[in-house]
Design a protein around this nucleic acid. Structure first.
Lengths: 355, 355
DNA sequence: TTGAAAGCGTTACCAT
DNA sequence: ATGGTAACGCTTTCAA
């Protein structure tokens, strides 16, 4: 029989409350008694209050749930995701909280939803989960504090998020390329269409794109490029099945192998952009000379690759998400955080070569 | 007031048990009633049984805890760790269990220990936590099934672990280099000394190394190299502050910039070895010709880098760890698993150039 | 400083 | 097929 609070209380000859206090509010009893209790606990092999029972009573668990799409396997392949997670882990660590990973596989949506239902956590962080995912209904109905890792399309006064101004950031990319003279432009992005296939797609209007971040970034690209007279319908859209380097390369092929090859390829993430650079290399094309390439996020690898990109503070973003959950600010306005971004120009972009 | 089982029961006019059954044992009641209950739950905004209360009652939480050293920040940057995590996640997922990451910060040990105390889990997986960490006392006293991700120094009949024969594997690396004629040899490793600093260190005897895995691997390196007459004291030891590519490069500098530059550098992980290769590249040295380099783990990146290394089945290791926790074998012997390893020889090692 | 009593929201068991 | 009752192990008033 496993020892409980009661066991210890009986052994010492005090009440449960006193033993409980010995653990949770040491200042509430005499040092002598406290020591006596701890000694008895050691002797009896009592490991301290049961976490589950304590959580039930206190109404606090000491863990936060992180929701992300895709298998865990892929979750960590994106350095940006890793950095974000690291930020949130650091905050959790300071609070003595754990991180409950909740993968939402696409193939088994119901399993993911169940996982969210059963998650014993004090709050949720929603990382890159499309707005239409059923799991979000559950997080809502559970009524726990929830923070999104990007600005949601619909923001109520209660909504917590930490994000960036996607449109504005993307606009600087578009503008940069427009000023360099680029007029034939391709975009490599995941989530352009509902299906997870890699290849060229046509989208009549950015508003049709369901996934928030993708939509906003593409909007921004278009707005910036408009400076050079490039319209939405001029863009060559290449969908990537997943946000991965390999699919970035595959998607880019459709643009690079055309006779009227684009002079610039805008990727919606750095990971995809690295793939685009791979595709360039495979064709002997020089980034920034033959074809300009841009990314988004500024992951560590971007520096070595000389990738022009948008820098956003990923670790800090995670840290803030954690803080929003663990130390919610009084002021509602402070619960909606927009982080600054910078356009980092490196060698992967350059002026269009005059013929 | 948040709705509970009772709320729903009252609304429908049935007992709590029935509502509970509607969720946990749907076959125990008529489809009609079940639907009626679910409908009422939806209407009242009842999110389903409270996970904490359910855990308390059932005596099972549905989550396993993974203990990480402060490296959590770094944990995700090591592809080997990611693969291991993936393996354990796959098993957990099959069992409908979650993965609770418990970060153990080095700076705030007490916070980590608290986190372990409070972790609502059914078992622990201890990943790369040094044997002297206080959190391990807690896992022990909690009496939950615990599996180590490597063979611990002290193994009782109860101890569960899944590891490899570190010494034997490392010995094959040492022997390989010895036979290639290498006599001036450096080792790049983390945890050689207690402090987290990067640079050359001296360690009188491998037994002094406190961190198990490091100690065993170095022992193996030395045993293998002894074939060529290289003794422990001949080794040039370079400590890396963290297990990361960057620190691997920094640590290697101390070896590569010497006048009597070593002809071989043995790294204790692939991540460090990639760093060593970076340092070589920065100096225009050719791996396998000017300097031989070896790693350990065989992460995916090792292939492209042409790194000679020890392959160990990382995903499988994680999967087995998960299985040990979630479906403990009857036979105690089966709870201690040693996985096979292979020496994978690639281009980063070669014979010493004759002068 | 210590103790008694009242739950926290479930589920398991045994009746009906 | 459904309901009543008793835990699960703890914390938290409140009173002594």
């Amino acid at each position: 029989m496993k020892p409980t609070l009661q066991t210890v209380a009986d052994a010492v000859g005090v009440s449960r409350s006193t033993v409980s206090n010995a653990y949770s509010r040491p200042d509430q009893l005499s040092p002598a008694l406290r020591e006596k209790i701890h000694e008895a606990a050691r002797r009896l092999g009592y490991p301290g209050p049961d976490p589950t029972a304590r959580s039930l009573r206190r109404g606090r668990v000491g863990a936060i749930g992180v929701l992300f799409t895709s298998a865990l396997s892929y979750a960590f392949t994106d350095p940006y995701a890793v950095q974000f997670l690291r930020g949130i882990a650091e905050t959790a660590e300071r609070h003595g909280s754990g991180l409950l990973l909740v993968p939402l596989s696409e193939s088994e949506e119901e399993a993911g939803i169940q996982a969210v239902r059963n998650a014993a956590v004090d709050g949720f962080c929603v990382y890159c989960v499309p707005a239409w995912h059923g799991a979000l209904d559950v997080t809502r109905s559970r009524g726990l504090p929830t923070v999104a890792a990007e600005r949601p399309a619909e923001v109520g006064p209660e909504t917590m998020y930490v994000g960036i101004d996607e449109v504005a950031a993307a606009r600087t990319v578009g503008g940069h390329l427009a000023r360099l003279g680029h007029r034939r432009v391709a975009v490599v992005s995941d989530f352009l269409v509902a299906q997870r296939r890699t290849g060229p797609v046509s989208v009549a209007d950015p508003a049709e794109i369901r996934y928030d971040v993708t939509r906003e970034r593409l909007r921004g690209f278009a707005e910036g490029l408009a400076e050079g007279g490039v319209g939405w319908s001029d863009l060559l859209l290449c969908n990537a099945g997943t946000n991965s380097r390999a699919e970035g390369a595959r998607a880019a092929e459709y643009a690079l192998d055309r006779v009227d090859r684009p002079t610039a390829v805008l990727a919606v993430t750095d990971l995809l952009a690295l793939g685009v650079l791979d595709a360039l290399a495979a064709r002997g094309l020089r980034p920034g000379r033959d074809v300009s390439v841009t990314g988004f996020d500024d992951i560590p690898e971007a520096t070595a690759a000389g990738l022009t990109t948008i820098r956003q503070p990923a670790v800090e973003k995670g840290a803030i998400a954690g803080r929003l959950l663990l130390e919610p600010p009084e002021d509602p306005a402070a619960r909606q955080v927009l982080l600054p971004t910078d356009l980092v120009v490196r060698a992967s972009t350059g002026p269009v070569e005059r013929k």
